Simulated assay, not measured.
Amino acid sequence: MFAAPDPLVDSIIEATSPSGEGIVNLREDGIRFQGFTVQNNQGSALGGYGINTVVGHSGYLVTNNVIQGNPAGMYYNSSGATQSQVTRNCIRLNNTGFQVQPAAGNGIYSDQGLDNALIDNNAFFQNRNGAITLDKFQNIVRVDINHNVSHQDEALLNIFRSNDSVVADNQAVGNTGAAIFIGDDNHGLQVLRNTVQGSYDGIRAQTFSNVGSDQVLIGNNTVQNVTHDGISAGPNSLTGSTVSDNSVTGSGHDGVLIEDEGGNSGNVVTRNVLQGSVQYDCEDLTTGTGTAGTANTWTDNQAATSNPAALCPRGPP
C-alpha cells in the first residue's frame, strides 16, 4: 500500500472544484509547479481534475508532484508556442466519479488541444480508464510520451486524432485493456521500444468512427504474456503502416493480427520475432494482392504458426 501524505512534512493541496476545473489551475505562460501532493477533488457533474493547464498558454513545467484521488489527475492542454512538460510525477488512483463524471479514470487527459508537449518519466498506477488519454477537439500534435511506467491502469496510453507524435521507451505492466491503444485518425505516430508485460492486449489499433490511422510505425517493442493479442489492428483501423522488429512472446490469442473489414491494407509486417502464441503467431484476415493473398506485405518474420499458412514461413528457432 502507498503511504498517505504527511501534513507535517508534505505540501498538500486538497479541495473540491464545483465548476469541473482543477484544484490547481495554471493560466499563464511558463508556470513551474513542483513538489506538491494534489488530491481528493470530488468534482461535480462537469468533472474535475487535480491540475488544469489551459490551451491558450504554453511552457508549463509540472514536475515531482503526487496527483491522486481526483476524478482525473491532470487536464493537460497547451498552445505549443513553447514546449510544455509533465515529468517525474506520481499519478495514481484518479477514479472519483468513474463512468459518471467526464474524463474520470484518467491520469492525464487532453481534448482541448495539446501541441509541442512532453510526458516523461512519470509513474502511473490504477487509473481505471488510462494513465494517459489524448483526444482532440483541437490538435494533438508533436507530443512525446517517453520513459513512463504504468502499473494496472486500463491502458498506458489511449491516443486519438494525433499528428507526428512519439511513444517511446515506456513500460506497461498488468494493464486491464490494451497497453497502448491507437484509436481513430492518427497520422505519423511512432510507437517505439516499449515493453508490455501481462496486459490484456499489447498494442491495439481500433477505430470507433470508421476513420483509421495511417503512416504509423510500431517498431522494436517487446510484448510478453498478454491475455489476448500482442500487436493487432481491428477492422478499418490501419493503412500504409509498418510493424517491424518487434518481439512478441506468449500471447493468449495471436502474436500479430490484422483483422478484415476491407480497410486494413498497404501495411508492412517485417522482421518480427513471434513465438508461443496460443492461436497463431501471424494472422492476417484481409484479402488482396499481398503476401499469401492478403492486402498487406509480410516479410522476414520468425514464427512457428500462421494463417494463411504461407504468411510467415517458419523461421530460425
Rank of each mutant, 00 (worst) to 15 (best):
N220K: 14
D120L: 09
T286K: 01
V166Q: 15
G212L: 06
N194G: 05
G263P: 01
Y109L: 10
V38Y: 02
N163F: 14
N70G: 01
G50Q: 06
N246G: 02
T249F: 10
G50L: 06
P71I: 03
L157Q: 01
Q112F: 12
V268W: 00
T287W: 02
G266S: 01
G48I: 09
I108N: 04
I119C: 03
F137K: 15
S244A: 11
S306Q: 07
S150Y: 00
A103L: 11
A103S: 13
F208L: 14
G130S: 15
N89R: 10
G48H: 04
A3G: 08
N89H: 13
S17D: 13
R92E: 06
S162T: 14
V173P: 06
Q224W: 12
L46R: 12
G177W: 10
V273Y: 09
C90L: 15
Q215G: 06
D135P: 01
G240L: 08
L46C: 04
G174V: 05
H151P: 10
V62L: 11
T63S: 15
N186P: 09
S265N: 07
I91C: 11
V54C: 05
S79M: 01
A179I: 08
N94W: 07
T270I: 03
Q224P: 03
R204V: 02
V191Y: 07
V216I: 15
N121I: 12
G266D: 04
L285N: 07
V278Y: 11
G105T: 11
D185K: 08
L192P: 08
D153A: 10
V191L: 07
T63M: 11
D164G: 06
L134Q: 06
G20M: 05
G255K: 07
N40G: 07
D229E: 14
T37P: 12
I258P: 00
V55T: 13
P308C: 06
Y109M: 12
G263S: 00
S78Q: 09
V54D: 10
N95M: 10
D185M: 03
Y200E: 14
Q224T: 15
T299Y: 00
T242H: 05
T289L: 04
L274A: 02
T207N: 00
L238V: 00
V66R: 11
T299G: 00
A15I: 09
A3W: 04
G240A: 00
N225H: 10
R128V: 06
D153M: 07
V173H: 08
N236I: 04
F33L: 02
Q42F: 03
V149M: 12
Q126W: 04
P5R: 02
A123G: 13
I203R: 02
T37Q: 09
G177I: 10
D254N: 15
Q99F: 13
H228D: 15
A295C: 09
G97S: 01
N41A: 01
V278W: 08
I12P: 00
F36K: 07
S244T: 13
G219L: 05
V248N: 03
N175C: 14
M1V: 14
A4D: 08
N170H: 11
I159E: 01
D29G: 04
Y60I: 09
N52T: 14
V248D: 06
C312G: 08
N146C: 13
T16G: 09
E28K: 12
L156Q: 02
